[in-house]
Design a protein around this nucleic acid. Structure first.
Lengths: 327, 327
DNA sequence: CTGTTAGCGCGTTCAT
DNA sequence: ATGAACGCGCTAACAG
């Protein structure tokens, strides 16, 4: 491994000068800089980021800690973060918490002990403890889900409006009795989507019916179970709003298993757009989140760091109407 | 940040002793060790991994560099890798190359300059250059796709057998004219799957027909385009074998757009199982890869490092039969 | 404008 | 069994 000393010797200058050139600090004689640059190239020198991080007391990689990685939403998100990270000289690594707070806590420790330069996190729980990051002045931005908004910046979508729009769309299309299947009450997206659903019903002068509100986990089995229960109701729903794509899969499976036709017997709109929604029968309507933009904005907030007070950016989602919600 | 010096002072010992205790080296007086341990706990000391990496010349995090993150296959893969990593004191971070060699190369540089302890990589191309990793003695294992097998260990599935089985299954079910849509010729999985397809045809005494073999990119548009062309054939196929799930989505879209019924007019089996395959109409048959096991085995190989010569582990996949391939 | 030098926090000789 | 001291590769403060 070639070090800064090798370069200094080769170019017959001091290590300080090499450091200045490598870090593009001005105040270095032009021809000397050129000499150093050519030595760097000739020896194939790359700064050792570990030594650099130790000295600077902060590194150049960002952690993107997310709870679920298996959706096209996530791919775009990473892309967005990476674009602005790279433009500012940072690298991005992804940490998969799998909705598990302990796993998440372990990654936060890794961030700390590896002296990473920043964290974009989609918190698994409201109990997610980022105080150690804050305490060590590691910039943090939450994405998709909020934490304490006075403490940490966030980039989210307007879940309430999105859910209300989706619900209104179903009502306008002639569906009358709409159920909402959403995630656990401790996840902000889940409660906001439920709130949006309720709002739309009220605006249409429809009484709320608690039996149509299903709070489940954000997984496939939750969607399946919810539909089982909804169909067993005396007065079952004629449309469904599902809170994420795994819930949608579960719900659809339950409908198929019972031979219920979509959208004739029951309409459906889900959260999260995915390519495969187009190849179900019928194609499924969905709330599409601007994942790339979410990633970009989060990265931009991260760059600002503590230079600016914590702020929350709200983006809006787009309803993609397909056959599943049209009678 | 509390350092090893703080602990040493607090426990009234030297930093060397603290280091020994923290790293569980024997030869330390029992009561002294206890004193150090309690100081560590009381001060909440965590070793600074950056300083440690600098000194040891190698770190404790593994990079998992993958080309496509948006499938349930990938989630299980990470889980498998993480399980064995954690048991051995390593952390895992994911780097998304998005099938782009340049992005991949950048991440390899990050691995180097961050002195990461190992790399599990699904190479974007055969041209992927891991020589710098090898040269610096960073353990590498490829996963899903092979590189030079004499140089680097690999964990793959038996793509040829899997494709042959899937093809045979279609033939046994009464389909006669089967097309194969697969990925670019430079990706090992793509050619092996094509080979398996050919093998099965030969074993059934069916002549190969080049017009039924579609080499596309591994994306949705590739699948769509391939089906367009296949259907325009004078003698179109009555079944499809698709090389990954994005190709499957594209193919299904093209079939829907033309109103072709599955499986009555055309049968289909794809690679990569996903939850949503159950909610298409009809549910789609697929080759399910043992992703968790792949991850585990790769991690185990990584642990062995250069202690053992490069070896290739081949796992077999399971065909999940659903309605799309049954007449 | 350039060079010398002191650490960043840790693991590891080498004495004791 | 324990501690003092050196250096991993780098940046930054200070001198010249």
């Amino acid at each position: 491994m070639t070090t800064i000393h090798d370069v200094a010797r080769h170019a017959a200058v001091s290590v300080a000068t090499v450091s200045r050139v490598v870090n593009r600090r001005d105040g270095v004689n032009t021809e000397m800089a050129a000499r150093v640059a050519s030595s760097v190239k000739e020896l194939g020198y790359t700064p050792n980021n570990v030594a650099r991080s130790l000295r600077r007391r902060t590194g150049s990689v960002w952690a993107l800690i997310v709870s679920d990685v298996a959706s096209s939403y996530f791919t775009s998100l990473v892309r967005g973060v990476e674009a602005v990270a790279r433009a500012s000289g940072f690298s991005v690594v992804v940490c998969n918490s799998q909705e598990d707070v302990e796993q998440e806590a372990r990654y936060i420790e890794v961030v700390l002990s590896e002296q990473m330069a920043g964290v974009i996190i989609s918190p698994a729980q409201p109990s997610t403890d980022i105080s150690r990051l804050i305490g060590r002045n590691v910039p943090v931005v939450t994405i998709d889900r909020k934490l304490d908004e006075t403490l940490v910046s966030a980039v989210v979508i307007d879940n309430m409006v999105a859910a209300a729009n989706a619900t209104a769309h179903l009502l306008d299309g002639g569906f009358q009795r709409i159920a909402c299947i959403t995630g656990p009450a401790h996840i902000s997206t889940a409660v906001e989507r439920l709130d949006g659903y309720r709002l739309a019903l009220r605006q249409h002068d429809i009484d709320l019916d608690a039996s149509l509100e299903k709070v489940e986990n954000y997984r496939e089995d939750g969607g399946y179970r919810a539909v089982e229960q909804l169909l067993a109701l005396e007065d079952p729903p004629d449309a469904l709003l599902t809170g994420n794509s795994l819930l949608t899969v579960g719900a659809m499976r339950a409908l198929h298993d019972r031979g219920i036709a979509v959208p004739t017997q029951i309409g459906i709109v889900g959260f999260d757009d995915n390519p495969w929604l187009q190849v179900t029968q019928p194609p499924l309507s969905a709330v599409a989140q601007p994942a790339d933009a979410l990633g970009r904005r989060a990265a931009e907030l991260l760059l600002q760091g503590s230079a600016v007070p914590a702020s929350t950016i709200v983006l809006s989602a787009r309803l993609v109407v397909r056959a599943s919600s049209r009678r």
